[in-house]
Design a binder for these strands. Structure first.
Length: 490
RNA sequence: GGCCCCAUCGUCUAGCGGCCUAGGACGACACCCUUUCAAGGUGUAGAUCGCGGGUUCGAAUCCCGCUGGGGUCACCA
């Protein structure tokens, strides 16, 4: 059973764009762990790169988390005891700490220009050596250092990585991972503009904010020795490191725009339910047991465990998402679904915005007919369109049953018109016997008559059951469409 | 290229030395239900567990090598 100490987890995105499903899955795990243990889920905005600042991205990102129902306990706006939660606002916290580290020799000042760094790399590459900083400023004399600083030469603070030995990262999913110091470099911790890099800010903040479990993408494994080193130099207790595997596109490649929707808000907008998204996401790289597929949010909270996260990357399957979504759509009451699809019908201009009471009543009658057929909420547009708009044209081969010819079909539809226009009780119970009788009288298979009528009334060969459909469509509309369809058979 | 991670049906996965003639789910296909399409039910196909060596009485499960895929080598996160 999982460790029940309250966990403090965090999602620390840089506000550069939308939240894609891979990140959202990490958020899910973070959130589940916090909820399960009675801990806190923290949102921290890593906006330390002013060049990559994207206006509105933070709002976008917060909106996505809220759409999914992952409310943060501490973070921008809501605050908390370890604020501020926007790293750009934490410079007053970073600077004294950086000064202390410089004092203690953990960090050292480097005056190398970007041009020199580039030149060094070019040379190394020419000699077929791995690229990387040559530690030129690491052994500067105190006098040189003072002189350069006095001269106002821009500088950065670098981590003085040990030259010998090794650092071990203890990742819960993979066990110990050893990195030889010889292959490491001296990464920049404080940039020349005074802002920290990820390596500094993320780890300082995780420590200061008392984060107990760091869940992040496994692309961070390679740089993690620097993070571990920082903790060790400062004598801080390390968090539990959990490098979760990548979520891949359908072709097994890294997720990109080429795979269709990747941003969580796109899925929501296209009519995927939060329950389905959550359930499906939880099952990419994690599973409760051999057979369980459906789990509520509460069950997920209860059953989640980081030990069962699989270390290998997985494809996020749209097929499976569709299946989950259809399932959850069927779980809702027709009234609930009516409310959920209304925005889609409004947007498609099938109903007015807002819908009139008459339109709402109609939609409520339509939902029971299409609910089983919805894979996403937006499917409701095409599935219910014919209720609002008469077919504009007919495909003759669809209208005419295979065994019948045009003339016979036309005659059949004319008889149907007579039967239907004389019908007093316009509901399923009234329609079915009348039409079955008609088929028998005319000597055609009931199915053939029904298909001709279906196409005449809806313009489509695939619809909900005919009698229910006609009942909702109404007598006047049905007869009108029948007339047009019949006329098209010239 | 160096370093690191990963490797079971098309996909998500179960499996943590014998219960595996490798289980489930999605998808595919077939049948049933049925006025069409769905939903639902039943069933079929689909992995010689990437390859090669070991260890062991016994390996998908442990070890080594190889191959393949991915990540990372920024004053980006």
């Amino acid at each position: 059973m999982p460790d029940l100490r309250p966990a403090r987890t965090r999602f620390a995105p840089s506000p550069t764009g939308f939240v894609h499903i891979g990140s959202m899955r990490t958020v899910l795990f973070d959130w589940l762990l916090a909820r399960q243990t009675g801990g806190q889920f923290i949102l921290r905005v890593e906006d330390t790169d002013r060049k990559r600042y994207v206006p509105g991205a933070e709002e976008q990102l917060k909106a996505s988390l809220q759409m999914m129902g992952f409310q943060w306990d501490e973070g921008p706006d809501v605050g908390g005891p370890f604020g501020p939660y926007r790293e750009s606002e934490r410079l007053p916290i970073y600077h004294p700490l950086a000064a202390e580290m410089e004092e203690r020799g953990i960090l050292y000042r480097c005056f190398c220009t970007p041009e020199r760094l580039e030149a060094v790399n070019r040379e190394k590459q020419a000699r077929r050596e791995p690229p990387g900083y040559d530690r030129h400023c690491r052994n500067l004399s105190p006098e040189d250092r003072a002189a350069q600083q006095a001269a106002g030469i821009p500088s950065v603070l670098r981590l003085a990585t040990p030259l010998d030995g090794e650092t071990v990262l203890h990742d819960v999913l993979r066990g110990p991972i050893t990195f030889k110091h010889a292959v490491l470099n001296d990464p920049v911790m404080i940039k020349s503009d005074g802002f920290p890099t990820y390596a500094f800010a993320a780890n300082v903040d995780d420590h200061l904010m008392e984060i107990t479990h760091v869940l992040r993408g496994d692309e961070w494994i390679a740089t993690s020795p620097y993070h571990v080193l920082l903790y060790q130099f400062m004598g801080w207790e390390q968090p539990v490191w959990v490098h979760v595997p990548q979520v891949l596109g359908t072709d097994g490649k890294k997720l990109s725009k080429r795979h269709g929707a990747t941003a969580i808000n796109e899925f929501i907008e296209r009519g995927y339910l939060v329950e389905a998204l959550t359930n499906c996401l939880a099952l990419v790289g994690w599973g409760y047991d051999e057979t369980t597929e459906f789990m509520t949010r509460e069950e997920l909270i209860e059953r989640f465990s980081i030990e069962r996260i699989s270390p290998n990357g997985g494809v996020f399957s749209h097929d499976k998402l569709n299946w989950f979504n259809g399932h959850y759509i069927r779980q809702h009451t027709p009234q609930e679904i009516a409310g959920m699809i209304m925005p889609y019908l409004e947007k498609a201009e099938l109903v007015s915005t807002p819908a009139t009471p008459e339109q709402q009543a109609l939609v409520e009658r339509i939902v029971p007919l299409i609910q089983d057929r919805l894979q996403t909420l937006s499917d409701a547009i095409d599935l219910s369109r014919f209720f609002f708009e008469a077919p504009t044209q007919y495909v003759r081969n669809d209208l005419v049953p295979k065994k019948l010819d045009v003339a016979t079909t036309k005659e059949l539809l004319q008889h149907a018109y007579t039967t239907l226009s004389g019908l007093v009780t316009w509901d399923e119970e009234g329609l079915e016997p009348a039409l079955r009788d008609l088929a028998e009288q005319r000597g055609v298979k009931a199915g053939d008559l029904f298909m001709a009528l279906r196409v005449a009334a809806t313009g489509s060969k695939a619809t909900p059951p005919l009698f229910q459909t006609l009942a909702v469509l109404g007598q006047a509309a049905t007869l009108e469409r029948l007339t047009v369809a019949t006329a098209s058979l010239e």
